[in-house]
Design a protein around this nucleic acid. Structure first.
Lengths: 179, 179
DNA sequence: TCCTGTAGATTTAGAGCTAAACATACAGGA
DNA sequence: TCCTGTATGTTTAGCTCTAAATCTACAGGA
């Protein structure tokens, strides 16, 4: 047995989890559970779906994230490692490894940047263009189907609430007590 | 440099990403981006926060997920590997590894289940109890602060929309064409 | 020129996960 | 009894990430 229930059928609901903590450890604050638990569940379902879809297309999510970021940047499809770190939201070490893997497969090239000799310019190769253009279309088409259950107004509202949560989490969490 | 901007300050907005694809590859369906991109960003901010918070408390997220699931189950704080797989939403192999790590640290024990000789009963030790009770309170208190930016009604609505999205993604994505 | 600081990038150690292969325990029929 | 199927766990290979240490290129002051 390798699998776990992808639809969360065996999983406990966020309400049940909060109720269980309230019963087992009375007094713990449980109101964040109703937001954070469903959020991670959905994120996991979507990540699993993306991994499988891309597996069928012959790419892995980390590499496609790299290629997509370069492709979206527009001509000349080149960014420095530092820019990639900012846009992909992973550490510089992770970018370095992603680029090394992609370079090994002939999807990108590495060269000293024209601006600074410290900076490294990562550029999409023709093969990289082929891969990204072939897979992004398939991926976005598939993901479009995953969100059909939400009406346009619901999607807009969901995106809005997620943005608000992101601001709240990033602002309040980093430093500590600020009240 | 090891870090990346935790608050997403250097990141491109979901709207910009969709606009970039529309410009670079006209015709690709981009309407899922407004939901999926913010969702993963928030999930990542929360995961990073949790990892750091738990790091300070001396536990790792995967182990705490295991211990919490056992703790929430109530007396006698024992579940089989299969039950853990269903509730933690990771593969059986991952559970096996989590349990092995936790057992090595004296946080849980493994024993043949009384019901079936195939099944393995994983039980919380006294030390496991100590760890989970010490850390869960701190973790939930911290996460409470991360969601203060959302009013109660907004939290409720967000949880509701996330549930609807989960149902949509799990239902529509697994099989393929079902029209 | 030498020292010091800083920024950009890479390397390495150690987690943690999935998928797939394997091992084990039964159950049910011939 | 033997065979077959199925459920439960474990192991292994390979990927990917973070955090920390390291390397390299400069810049600015003494």
């Amino acid at each position: 047995m390798t699998e776990y229930p992808l639809d969360g059928s065996g999983a406990i609901s966020a309400v049940d989890i909060a109720a269980a903590w309230d019963r087992e450890l009375p007094g713990v604050p449980t109101s964040s559970i109703g937001v954070i638990t469903p959020l991670w569940r959905v994120a996991k379902v979507l990540a699993d779906e993306r991994r499988r879809t891309l597996g069928r297309l012959g790419v892995d999510p980390a590499t496609l994230d790299l290629l997509s970021t370069l492709r979206r940047a527009g001509e000349p499809w080149t960014l420095t490692t530092r820019e990639l770190t900012e846009r992909c939201l992973v550490t510089a070490g992770a970018i370095s490894q992603r680029v090394a893997r992609a370079e090994r497969e002939g999807l990108v090239t590495r060269a000293p940047s024209s601006a600074s000799r410290r900076a490294v310019a990562v550029a999409l190769t023709e093969r990289g263009h082929d891969v990204v253009e072939r897979t992004v279309r398939g991926l976005l088409t598939h993901e479009e189907e995953l969100v059909v259950g939400l009406a346009p107004e619901e999607r807009r509202r969901l995106g809005e609430l997620l943005g608000k949560l992101a601001a709240s989490a990033a602002g309040g969490g980093g430093v500590g007590g600020e009240g």
